[in-house]
C-alpha cells in the first residue's frame, strides 16, 4: 500500500512517547515511507546529522530539549526540512509560538493518519516549490 506522492519519502518522527513511535513507524513503513524515530531532541539532532529528511514531525512537550528548541535548531541548521509540530498539549499559545518560530503546521494529538500525511504532503510540496 502506498500513499500518493509520499512513496520513498524520508520522515523523522520525534516523540518522547515510545509507545506512540512504534505503531506510527509501522503504519508509515507500510505506506512506503522511510520512517526514522527519535525519543528526544538530542536524538533527533543525531538522526538529522546522519541523513537528510524530507519532513519532521516533532512533539512539543519533551523532557530536556523540547519541540520548540528543536524547531529553532532545525530552522537554523536544516532550513530545508519542514517541521510539523504535534502535541497533546491543548494550548493555543504554544501553537502560535510554534508557527512564529517557523513550523509548517501545528497538529493536535490524537491525529488521524490521513490528516497527518496530508499535512506532510503539503509541507514537502511547499518546501520543494
Amino acid at each position: 500500500m502506498t500513499s500518493p506522492g509520499l512513496s520513498g519519502l524520508k520522515l523523522l518522527i520525534v516523540d518522547d512517547e515510545v509507545e506512540f513511535l512504534e505503531p506510527m513507524s509501522a503504519r508509515l513503513t507500510r505506506r512506503q515511507i522511510q520512517c526514522a524515530t527519535a525519543e528526544n531532541g538530542l536524538q533527533a539532532l543525531e538522526r538529522l546529522a546522519a541523513q537528510t529528511f524530507d519532513c519532521a514531525v516533532v512533539d512539543v512537550k519533551m523532557p530536556g530539549m523540547d519541540g520548540l528548541d528543536l524547531l529553532r535548531r532545525m530552522r537554523h541548521d536544516y532550513p530545508a526540512t519542514p517541521v510539523i509540530l504535534l502535541t497533546g498539549h491543548a494550548s493555543v499559545e504554544l501553537g502560535v509560538q510554534g508557527i512564529e518560530l517557523g513550523a509548517f503546521e501545528y497538529l493536535m494529538k490524537p491525529v488521524d493518519l490521513d490528516e497527518l500525511l496530508d499535512t506532510v504532503r503539503r509541507a514537502v510540496k511547499g518546501s520543494r516549490v
Partner: peptide, 24 residues
C-alpha cells in the same frame, strides 16, 4: 486542562496508532 489534555491525548494518540496498525 492544557496539561491534562496532554495526559489524555497522548494515550489516545497511541491507541489511534495501534488501532491503525490493526486496521492495516
Amino acid at each position: 486542562a492544557a496539561g491534562v489534555a496532554h495526559e489524555i491525548n497522548n494515550p489516545l494518540a497511541v491507541i489511534l496508532a495501534q488501532v491503525g496498525v490493526l486496521a492495516d
